[in-house]
Design a protein around this nucleic acid. Structure first.
Lengths: 125, 125
DNA sequence: CGGAATCCATTACGATACTG
DNA sequence: CAGTATCGTAATGGATTCCG
């Protein structure tokens, strides 16, 4: 399968597939949570500490979305005080590879992009 | 470099890198435009026809963002009526690979995700 | 033809406060 | 500890109109 044919995966179906994942992971926190959970099972507060800047509300919302998508699993232990642990499902684990691919692209090309932006912003036409 | 170390690309720097690209490509149309331009140079109206559902406004906005990022180039021909052509820059071409990786993940796991969502929504706890 | 300007609806996000 | 509820703000995107 050629690269050109593969881009049809993106454009085909009027782009519904690609938009579906972007709606899923294109937000501010999802990939950060998935990457953090790659280190293993974690509880709510622990996640919050590993992801600086996330609010309780957004962490809670994001976790429920990810659980609904089947990418993470939630385990509530019947204890006092309550203990709830989150971990990646097997399907969630598979998201790591595309996420890394994307991150590596970002790291590699960020300098070039920023240079381009500076040039664009300082041109006077 | 291990996969775990690679996820630090995502989490490291408080996730600024990953958020930078998601701000860049995590929106509704960017990847669709890049994938469409993989077919070669195209003009404004042509792009609009290849990307069903996109409004003039969003196409115009997205194209200017991509141009600012140095991922596409814009060529305005001094003719009447005006003719403007867009094409991927060399850097823009490199985005194709991560985009395809993501799209393939989406195609492969969408069924599982949708099943999970249905199960989640129909459970009564 | 290839846009820019304007208006509007929806959503995402953040801060704060409260609870089983 | 692990959330939910409520509020206000900002960003996103669609529809429409106008213009060189």
């Amino acid at each position: 399968m050629s690269q050109y044919e593969k881009t049809c995966l993106i454009r085909g179906d009027s782009g519904r597939t690609i938009r579906a994942i972007l709606d899923r992971i294109g937000n501010k926190w999802t990939l950060l949570i998935v990457a953090t959970l790659h280190g293993g099972r974690m509880r709510f507060t622990e996640l919050q500490q590993h992801i600086p800047g996330i609010s309780q509300r957004m962490l809670s919302l994001s976790l429920r979305h990810l659980e609904r998508d089947g990418l993470i699993s939630r385990t509530a232990h019947a204890e006092v005080p309550p203990r709830v642990e989150y971990e990646l499902t097997p399907m969630g684990q598979t998201l790591i590879v595309p996420a890394i691919t994307l991150a590596e692209w970002a790291v590699e090309h960020n300098p070039g992009i920023e240079r381009s932006q500076t040039a664009y912003d300082s041109r006077d036409d």
